[in-house]
Simulated assay, not measured.
Amino acid sequence: MFGLFRKSKPVKIRSCSLNTKYGVAAKDLKELMKKACKTLQVPLVGAHVCLYSDGTKVTEEFFLTLPDHTELVLLSKGQTWSGVVCDIGHLLNSDRHADGLIEAAKVLLSDEQSPKRRKILTDLLQNLKDRSELESREEDEEWFKGVDTRFKTKSAYMKFNCESRIRGYMKEVDDATKTIQKAKDRAEFLKASTCLAEKLKEGKYNGCYFDRTGKEPDRLCTQEGWFTCQGSFDQDVCQSLHSINPYGSRESRIIFSTWNLDHRIEKKRTIIPSLLEALQNHKTADVNLTYFYHLLFTRENLKLVHIVCHKKGAHNLLCDAKKIYRAARNTDKRNLRAKGKKRPLT
């Protein structure tokens, strides 16, 4: 008796081959099937309805428990639906042009509520926009929006991007001079800083790390421009398998700017203070500047990491005491101590 006065339940219904969704109101599953089949022009015989989210088949009892505006898929006899992955599959298997695929993905994303499925669709949309095979400004003007006009290729800009980061590390070394009180120590540190800067300039500021046109041993990316997170400072690999191709789209280029070239042995907490300490009682010629150069500016101590894998807490890693001073000088010191002599002034 109460069923006679049951309130109609509004739902959204669509077929498995079309993205368009229709609003339908029905008191029970039987009424829904009739209206849905008529709207989508699907034969009623053998037809059934399932949840759009995960493909669960909707029974009469289940229908009564559904929240208003639940998204459903109407299937004809023999058809199946396993959730949003079906949408993605249909999308990728379609014959649409890349621009059409992007628009279709945007439509799916605009009406998607599940955080996990939004993540899948967002990643898919990002990859659909991939134009990494294009290199020049003329070929991909969208990629260069916001980039200085002097850069004519993606590789040239990415190389500059890496150089800028490395130059920033050199500036931090130079700024450390301000913390030195004694003039003698300051002069020695400036001498060491100048040596490091000259060596860095010779290496073209290691811009090759981000340049996909560079040699394979030098660059951090594939020839196509894909970068892979190397994991946090205390891990051998990235557990989340983060990867990105900043050459693919303007959005990827911007997101890549949040990735870090992280120093395993920390720059501010450890490397620069160790260099300062070494120069307090020794001349620049005594210090192994090549070792400090590698720690500050090269892949020997740098790891490319996704922002999630960048641990900002103390790394608690120290410089190798055996490498801080030049080996030849250490040998001279040991020989002099064995003879009971003082080291001559140099």
Rank of each mutant, 00 (worst) to 15 (best):
W81H: 09
V305A: 02
T298G: 07
L336G: 00
L74E: 04
E139M: 09
I166T: 02
Y247A: 04
C195T: 03
K311D: 08
I120K: 14
G207T: 11
C238L: 12
A285K: 13
Q181W: 00
D211S: 07
Q230K: 11
K201L: 07
S164E: 08
R343A: 07
R14L: 09
R343D: 03
F5D: 14
H263V: 07
L66W: 02
C221E: 03
W226D: 13
F189K: 04
F160Y: 15
I180H: 00
T153A: 05
V58Q: 02
E103F: 06
K34G: 03
N245A: 11
T149R: 15
S243V: 09
K323M: 14
V287I: 13
V24W: 02
E139H: 07
H48V: 00
K199T: 10
C238R: 10
E133M: 10
M158E: 09
K30T: 14
T70W: 02
R250I: 04
Y209F: 15
L125F: 13
T194Y: 02
A285P: 02
M170V: 00
T331N: 05
Y291G: 08
V85I: 08
D218V: 00
D211P: 06
K27D: 00
L75M: 05
T65Y: 03
W143N: 08
K171F: 01
G23P: 00
Y205L: 01
S249I: 09
E216H: 10
P10V: 08
L295W: 03
G225S: 10
R167I: 01
V85F: 03
F233H: 15
I272Y: 10
L109F: 14
S252Q: 15
K191F: 06
E135A: 15
R150L: 06
K333E: 10
K152D: 08
N93G: 07
C229M: 05
L44I: 14
K267F: 02
C309Q: 04
A197S: 14
W226N: 10
I13A: 02
Q235D: 12
S193L: 00
L275W: 03
D95I: 03
D54K: 12
T331M: 06
A328R: 09
T56S: 07
A176W: 01
P273I: 10
C319Q: 04
Y169L: 01
I324F: 04
R186H: 01
W259F: 13
E133V: 13
Y205F: 15
H69V: 01
L74I: 03
D174K: 06
A338V: 01
C16H: 05
K159V: 00
G46S: 02
P246W: 12
A156S: 11
N330Y: 01
T228Y: 15
T222F: 05
G248E: 12
R212K: 13
T213Y: 01
L295G: 03
I102P: 09
S252L: 11
T331V: 09
D286E: 12
C208G: 04
F2D: 15
V42Q: 11
K268N: 15
L220Q: 03
I180T: 00
S8H: 02
R167M: 01
Q223Y: 11
K312W: 01
S110T: 08
G207D: 13
K341G: 14
D99R: 13
V147E: 06
N127K: 15
L220T: 03
L75V: 04
